[in-house]
């Protein structure tokens, strides 16, 4: 379980997250909505442990352990993983090597790569000259190898062409154990209870909702979580009235 309590974060001199409370239980996937600059990426980066995001108050607990001040790699080892929106290029490091580094054990990167149509990129330097959609598939491939228990997705569908969007959606669903297998001994709903993987997904378009059954939607507005509701409802509400509606919720909540 991921538990965030009264989290306050500064980036440089600027306060970017204000009193965030969030709880993701094992098996749950949450969708994070919010306008540009509202702090969505900052929240993910803070959970991942990027040191420039300075936690000034509050606490992040993962699997019962206080990770608020743990370095990035220790969080990764505990099972936190992130699919980045704009990851850096690593010159001279082949995607194949990167995928191997992500996996704790031996893996067959060719087979994994085939699942996201990425075999042709394994011998290219990580992210070097990749298009937006290629970056997403590269990130997914790394998530598949790393198989973290909590997955943070920063706009996984942005820049992905229509042809690949279902591939990306289905891959995320599979990573989050949404594709429930037919097992004789259990009903699908029972199998659902056995899910352990947790997800937090940033989306603007909501396309991802067509593929990933999400448990909750959250709206982050001006560094505050203003609303927790059914993600489809949030999406249609924002579509109709825009994020300015959120201001009313915030005012009411406080």
């Amino acid at each position: 379980m991921l538990q965030i309590e009264d989290l306050q974060v500064k980036l440089g001199e600027k306060e970017i997250l204000k009193h965030i409370d969030l709880e993701i239980r094992p098996g749950e996937t949450h969708i994070l909505f919010g306008p540009n600059g509202s702090g969505k990426t900052s929240l993910l980066m803070t959970i991942m442990g990027y040191p420039q995001y300075e936690v000034v108050a509050g606490k992040i607990t993962f699997k019962g352990e206080d990770i608020t001040h743990l370095p990035i790699d220790e969080r990764a080892k505990l099972g936190v993983g992130m699919s980045f929106q704009r990851p850096p290029t690593i010159n001279g490091l082949k995607t194949r090597q990167m995928v191997r580094l992500c996996a704790k054990d031996e893996i067959d990167e060719e087979t994994l790569a085939k699942q996201v149509n990425f075999e042709g990129f394994l011998d290219r330097d990580v992210n070097a000259g990749f298009s937006g959609g290629e970056i997403k598939r590269s990130e997914l491939l790394q998530m598949m190898a790393q198989a973290p228990d909590l997955m943070l997705f920063d706009e996984p569908e942005s820049g992905v062409d229509m042809e690949n969007i279902s591939l990306v959606g289905k891959t995320i669903a599979s990573l989050l154990q949404k594709d429930l297998p037919d097992v004789e001994t259990k009903s699908k709903m029972q199998a659902r209870l056995n899910r352990t993987k947790m997800g937090l997904i940033i989306t603007h378009t909501g396309y991802i909702l067509d593929y990933v059954a999400a448990d909750k939607g959250q709206v982050l507005y001006d560094g505050m979580l203003s609303c927790v509701s059914n993600p489809h409802e949030i999406l249609s509400c924002v579509g109709e009235s825009g994020y300015k509606e959120c201001v009313r919720c915030i005012t009411e909540n406080n």
Partner: peptide, 17 residues
């Protein structure tokens, strides 16, 4: 940081780069 998020220690990440 990117490599650390994949589970490498800071030293391993530096060596890899």
């Amino acid at each position: 940081a990117y490599l650390m998020s994949r589970g490498l220690s800071e030293d391993e990440a530096t060596a890899t780069i």
